[in-house]
Amino acid sequence: MDGNGRWAKARGLPRRDGHRAGAESVRECVEACKQIGIKYLTLYAFSSENWNRPPAEVSALMTLLERFLDQKAEEMMKQNVRLLAIGHTERLPEKTRNKLRKAMERTAGNTSMTLVLALSYGSREEITEAARSIAKDAAAGTLDPDSITKELFASRLYTSDMPDPDLLIRTSGELRISNFLLWQISYSEIVIFKKYWPDFHQSDLFEAVEEYSRRHRRFGAL
């Protein structure tokens, strides 16, 4: 979800207003996915690199996340949506972390759709940690290196209980992955929108899914 700050700057607004507008696009996107039966939606909400942003902006983002959790927990219960998070969530402020934990616990039994928030997330860190975990087991003699497969490696990732994404949507016209689910999106279809995230609406998500439906996925085969 890219372009909140640039969206605000183009309108002469503070960056936090762009993040607020982006939160409305999140709501629309979740509702659209629910309508068409998408079972998993992962939103790159806050990267591990985002901690390097100005403290005031980081604080505003945490406040916005807390507000989202407060306002949407009841709605997720009504719509049977489960909330999960991936990343180093222990780095979040305690208040934010507690609200996130409570929302996940409250929605744990929901089955209609899973909303995954990538928070303090970086894919290189995730892959490094998975490799370190496997190396420790091999060094301890509890894992035969010859038994290491891509399935075993995937089981050590944060997303071990989730399917790999079929479709990756990137807004603001950026043509890069930005350290997001590098292992998991190996064969994901990619759709790029030039518009900033706050201008991304339900019709855009439907357009992306329609574009995805026209593609022939070969997974490396002919």
Rank of each mutant, 00 (worst) to 15 (best):
R20G: 14
A130N: 07
D166H: 11
L117K: 10
M77I: 01
R218P: 06
L167R: 14
P163T: 07
T149P: 00
D204R: 03
W197P: 04
M62A: 05
T96Q: 00
P163A: 05
G3I: 09
T42V: 00
D166T: 14
A135I: 07
K39Q: 01
S147L: 03
R101Y: 04
E210R: 15
Y40E: 00
H88K: 15
D166L: 08
E57R: 06
R176W: 05
S188R: 13
S59Q: 12
L119E: 08
L100I: 01
I177H: 12
A118I: 03
H201Y: 13
H216P: 14
W197M: 13
G37R: 04
T89H: 14
G5H: 02
D204E: 02
A140L: 10
S160C: 09
L65F: 05
F46C: 10
P145K: 10
L92D: 08
I190H: 02
L65V: 01
N179M: 01
M62E: 11
T89W: 12
V58A: 01
N110H: 04
D199I: 14
R156H: 03
S186K: 00
E94C: 11
A140Q: 08
E57G: 05
T128C: 03
R106D: 02
G141W: 03
S203D: 05
H88M: 14
M76C: 06
K9G: 03
V209C: 11
Y187I: 04
R217L: 15
F46K: 04
A73Q: 01
D161N: 14
I169L: 07
A154C: 15
A108C: 02
S155K: 08
R106C: 01
E57Q: 01
K9F: 07
L69Q: 12
E31C: 14
L84D: 04
K136S: 12
D144F: 01
P93V: 00
G173V: 15
A221I: 11
T128V: 07
F206V: 08
E24R: 14
V116W: 09
L64D: 13
L167Q: 10
R124C: 04
A131M: 15
Y40N: 06
E207F: 15
I190R: 06
R132T: 07
S188M: 01
E24G: 13
R101S: 13
I148L: 11
Y121I: 09
P14V: 15
D146L: 06
A32C: 11
L83V: 05
K102N: 06
W183T: 02
G220K: 03
T149Q: 11
A135H: 05
V26R: 14
N80C: 02
A60S: 14
R20T: 10
I169H: 02
S47L: 00
K102F: 07
D164W: 12
S203V: 14
S112N: 00
Y196W: 11
G12F: 08
N50H: 00
I177R: 11
D70K: 03
T111V: 10
E105W: 01
L117S: 11
G22R: 13
T107N: 01
T111P: 03
T107M: 09
I134C: 04
L182M: 07
L152E: 05
T114R: 07
L61Y: 00
